[in-house]
Every structure is written in C-alpha cells, then in structure tokens.
Simulated assay, not measured.
Amino acid sequence: MGIIQRFKDIMTSNINALLDKAEDPGKMIDQYMRNLESDLGKVKAETASVMAEETRSKRELDECTAEIDKLQQYAEKAVMAGNDEDAKQFLAQKSSLVDKQASLQQAYSLAAENAGKMRQMHDKLCSDIALLDSRRDAIKAKVKVAKTQEKLNKMGASIDGAKGNLSAFDRMEEKANKMLDEANAMAELNKEPKSADMDALKSKYDSQPAAAVDDELAALKAKLGK
C-alpha cells in the first residue's frame, strides 16, 4: 500500500534531515517532536480512511453473502414446489453473485490487511512519541549542561589569555624602567660642573693660610704684651 510506505519515508526523512543540519540537539528534538505530531495527525486521518474502507468492504461482502444465501433458499423452495425453471433462475443469479463474492472477499482481505498495518503504524508512532517526549527533558538538560561547560571552557581560556597579557605588561614595564634608568645616567654623565662652584671650592682652601697668619700674629702680640 502506497500510503504506508509514504509515511514510513516521511518519518525517516524527518529525522535524517534534522540530523544532517543539527547544531543544537535541544532545538532539534523539539522540531522532531513537532514533525512527529504533524505526521501523527496525517497517519490518524489515513488510518481512519483505511478503516472506513475496511468497514465498507466488509458490509458489501456481508450483503453479497446474505443475498447468495437467500437465492439458495429460494432455489430450494422452487425445487420443493416442483418449479425447476424458477430454481434454475435463482441458481443462475446465485452463480453470478458467487463470482462477485470472491472479488469482494479479496477486496475486503486487502482492506483489512491495510487497516491492520495502519493501526500498527499509528500505535507505534504514538508509542514513539510518548517515549521521545519522556526523554526530551533529559536530552535538553544534557544540552544545557554541555553549553554551561562550553562557556566555562571559554572563560578559562580568556583568563589564561589575561594572565599572558599581564606577563607581557610586566616585561614592558621592566623595559621602560631600564630605559628611564639609562636616560637618567646619561643625563648625569652629560652634566658639566659650574665655574662658580669650582671657585668656591678653591677659595675654601685659599683662605686657610691667611687664617693661620692671623693666629700667629695674635700669639706674638700676646707674648710681647702688646
């Protein structure tokens, strides 16, 4: 039956298409569930249609069988009444209905088989949806934990990168300090002594002999009573 294979293909293609482009399992499972719910609605409609066909085929078969039984009874009554020609007509009509009955029986058997398959598909799909729905929260919880861990991993990488930046800043500061020390040293070396300072330094030592002469003169005067 084409409808059964078609819905098998639909349900298979749904999950395969989602898996091919899946980036977020949480979103994927939600989309898959929506697809399954949509498929379930279609399967229900088709199942009802096939079951209705089974019921119609069974009704036609039962009506045909009942008519055959009536013709058989009429033929028997005609024979008992001695009306063989009437019995032949009833039997001829019965023979044509027997051929129809075989065709109706074949149609009913096929309709019943299709209805059984559709009911099985419907029940299996309902069961799958219930199972997946019970697992959906667990799947989404795992996805949430995985995303949290991923964020932590990125934060850890950022912190490690910041440590590396701090180390680089330390090296740059050390280099800047060295450059400043060298510049200060060079400035000290380039500094020339002032001439006024040198004159003051010389006068310090030039004055010492004059002071010694004055002291000696004072001592001599004291000795002479002057």
Score class of each variant (00 low, 15 high):
1 M>N: 06
1 M>I: 05
1 M>R: 02
2 G>D: 15
2 G>Y: 07
2 G>L: 13
3 I>Y: 02
3 I>M: 05
3 I>C: 03
4 I>A: 04
4 I>L: 08
4 I>E: 06
5 Q>P: 01
5 Q>V: 12
6 R>Y: 11
9 D>R: 10
11 M>T: 11
13 S>F: 07
14 N>S: 12
16 N>C: 10
16 N>F: 12
16 N>E: 15
18 L>Q: 00
19 L>F: 06
20 D>C: 04
20 D>I: 10
20 D>R: 12
21 K>R: 12
23 E>C: 03
23 E>T: 10
24 D>Y: 00
26 G>C: 00
27 K>W: 01
28 M>G: 01
30 D>E: 07
30 D>K: 06
32 Y>D: 02
33 M>Y: 01
34 R>H: 09
35 N>H: 03
36 L>P: 00
37 E>H: 04
37 E>K: 10
40 L>Q: 02
41 G>E: 08
41 G>S: 08
41 G>A: 11
42 K>R: 12
42 K>M: 14
43 V>F: 00
43 V>E: 01
44 K>S: 10
45 A>E: 12
48 A>P: 00
49 S>K: 12
50 V>A: 07
52 A>H: 05
52 A>N: 10
54 E>A: 11
54 E>G: 05
57 S>P: 01
57 S>G: 10
59 R>Q: 13
60 E>Q: 11
60 E>D: 13
60 E>P: 00
61 L>R: 06
61 L>N: 03
64 C>L: 02
64 C>P: 00
65 T>Q: 04
66 A>F: 02
69 D>S: 11
69 D>P: 01
70 K>V: 09
70 K>M: 09
73 Q>R: 10
73 Q>Y: 05
74 Y>F: 14
75 A>L: 01
75 A>G: 04
76 E>I: 13
77 K>C: 05
77 K>H: 09
80 M>T: 13
81 A>K: 07
81 A>P: 00
81 A>D: 09
82 G>N: 01
83 N>P: 00
83 N>Y: 03
84 D>N: 14
84 D>P: 03
86 D>R: 15
87 A>M: 01
87 A>G: 03
87 A>Y: 05
89 Q>H: 08
90 F>A: 06
90 F>H: 07
91 L>Q: 12
91 L>H: 05
92 A>T: 08
92 A>R: 10
93 Q>E: 15
93 Q>I: 06
95 S>G: 09
95 S>D: 13
100 K>F: 04
101 Q>M: 13
102 A>G: 14
102 A>M: 13
104 L>K: 06
104 L>H: 05
104 L>Q: 11
104 L>A: 05
105 Q>F: 11
106 Q>M: 13
108 Y>H: 14
